[in-house]
Amino acid sequence: MISRKLVDFSTKNSFFLFGPRQTGKTTALLSFLKQNHENRYWTVNLLLSGSFLTYEKDPSQFSRDAIYQIEKKQVRCIFVDEVQKIPLLLDEIHQLIESYKDVYFILSGSSARKLKRGGANLLGGRALVRHLFPLTFAELEDNFDLERVLTIGTLPGIYFDSPAVALDKLRSYTEVYLKEEIIFEALLRKVGDFHRFLEVAAQHTSEIVNFENISREAATKGKTVKGYFQILEDTLIGHTLPAWDQSIRKQLSLHPKFYFFDNGVVNGILGSLDGIKFPEFRGKLFEQWLINEIRANIVYSKAPIKMHFWRTQAGTEVDLILSKSAKPFAAIEFKAQKEIGKKHLAGIKSFSEEYAVDNKVLVCEVATSSIYDGIEVLSLTDFLSKRLGELISPKA
Results as ranks from 00 to 15, higher is better:
G227F: 00
K72G: 00
S253W: 03
T220H: 05
I321M: 10
N213P: 00
A202C: 04
E180N: 07
V361N: 01
S108I: 04
S108T: 11
L155Q: 12
S10V: 09
I375S: 05
Q69R: 12
K284A: 09
R4G: 02
H255G: 02
G275W: 12
S60D: 09
K342M: 10
L178G: 01
C77T: 14
F144H: 10
R171P: 07
F105H: 05
P134E: 08
G315R: 08
I237E: 01
V366C: 08
K223V: 13
D262T: 06
R295S: 08
A243Y: 04
I214G: 08
S99V: 12
I276M: 04
R76A: 07
E354L: 15
L345W: 09
F278K: 14
I305E: 03
T43R: 12
S110Y: 00
H37Y: 15
I106Q: 08
K338N: 15
L187D: 07
K324G: 08
E82I: 01
V149G: 05
Y68T: 13
A326W: 13
A112F: 05
D193H: 13
L378M: 12
L47C: 02
G157S: 11
F32Q: 06
N143T: 13
K342E: 14
R130S: 09
F229T: 02
Q230K: 11
K57W: 06
K57Y: 08
A367G: 06
Y228S: 02
V265N: 01
E212P: 00
S352H: 14
I86V: 11
C77E: 03
L178H: 00
R249Q: 13
A243W: 06
G227C: 01
D102P: 12
E181G: 00
L132V: 06
Q69F: 10
N263P: 11
F9D: 05
L322A: 08
G268S: 03
I237S: 02
A346S: 13
N263M: 06
L322D: 05
D234W: 01
P304E: 04
S162R: 11
T23W: 06
G222F: 06
L6M: 11
K116T: 03
S162G: 09
I237V: 14
F160Q: 09
S10H: 13
V103A: 05
A303F: 04
E98N: 11
L155I: 07
V209K: 01
K72D: 12
K223M: 05
F194P: 04
V44M: 04
S352D: 14
V191I: 14
T368R: 13
L388G: 10
E339A: 13
Q95G: 15
L33C: 07
D161F: 09
P134H: 09
A356N: 14
L132Q: 09
E147N: 14
Y173H: 00
L135F: 10
K169L: 14
R249S: 15
F278C: 02
A166F: 07
E141T: 13
L178E: 01
E339N: 14
D358S: 15
K25N: 06
V176C: 00
E353R: 15
F133G: 02
R130H: 10
L6R: 10
I248V: 15
